[in-house]
């Protein structure tokens, strides 16, 4: 998987969140975006997902340029599966219906095929017993696994995780991270913003360290965690590993 940013900028009003990022990364399976809060990781991921319009610059995914008009962006988004921190499930639909909705409405599967595919994905994530429940009846970990099922079922080219465990307690965090680790074994490709350093170290092929709206370091995971080059990354890791 190849990811390229060319002079990407993003401002919210006078606030520059992403400052002239240019980079080119190739990774076999997993790219983790890490760094201090408010540094621009999530914004970067959301731009990659086509959910946040760029103020300027270009993004390429496997050498195809991300379109900028809303209609082509919609087709672009269809190829990606996004998982949010707050799950963002549809509260009026059951777990199964949440997974089925994009299959039927966006990917034009028949209702039968969509049900079949949704059930098999839910089963793989050990959610077959919860398929009829609405999100309000599910635990946080279950909700996030349904959200992952929704993203997986469309057979995306790439998955994007935006701090998928930040809203979960340690036990549920483990439950969700287990699922994500399995995805790597299944040969899925994904980009993940995370604060779980142990997990990032274990699963990432490549790590990008982002702070103050800039990508300060890109390295393969072992070398980043053992010998970070930038001062900011050293400081960040020492703070995080202190306790």
């Amino acid at each position: 998987m190849k990811l390229e940013f060319k002079n990407v900028e993003k401002s919210f009003g006078p606030h520059r969140v992403i400052r002239d990022i240019s980079l080119s990364v190739e990774f076999s399976h997993v790219l983790c975006l890490i760094g201090p809060s408010g540094g621009g990781k999530s914004t970067l991921l959301r731009m990659l997902a086509g959910l946040e319009p760029l103020s300027s610059g270009e993004i390429y995914l496997d050498d195809t340029r991300q379109p900028s008009d809303e209609v082509s962006l919609r087709h672009f988004r269809k190829r990606l599966g996004v998982v949010f921190q707050a799950y963002n499930l549809f509260p009026h639909l059951s777990a199964l219906e949440n997974v089925v909705l994009p299959l039927v409405e966006v990917h034009r599967l028949s209702r039968d095929d969509a049900n079949k595919r949704a059930r098999s994905v839910l089963e793989r994530l050990r959610l077959e017993k919860e398929e009829a429940k609405r999100p309000s009846a599910l635990s946080g970990g279950q909700k996030q696994r349904v959200a992952i099922a929704r993203a997986l079922a469309i057979h995306p080219e790439m998955l994007l995780f935006d701090e998928p465990t930040s809203a979960l307690d340690p036990e549920m965090t483990a439950e969700v991270l287990d699922v994500i680790a399995e995805l790597k074994k299944e040969d899925r490709k994904f980009v993940m913003v995370t604060h779980e350093m142990g997990f990032a170290r274990q699963i990432a092929d490549v790590v990008a360290f982002i702070a103050e709206g800039k990508v300060l370091e890109i390295a393969d995971a072992p070398s980043f965690f053992e010998s970070p080059k930038s001062e900011e990354a050293k400081l960040f890791l020492s703070k995080i590993l202190k306790y």
């Binding site: 988004r77 269809k78 549809f90 994009p102 966006v106």
Partner: peptide, 11 residues
């Protein structure tokens, strides 16, 4: 977040 989720799945 509901709008965002809907956009993300391509609606």
């Amino acid at each position: 977040s509901q709008w965002e989720s809907a956009r993300a799945i391509g609606l």
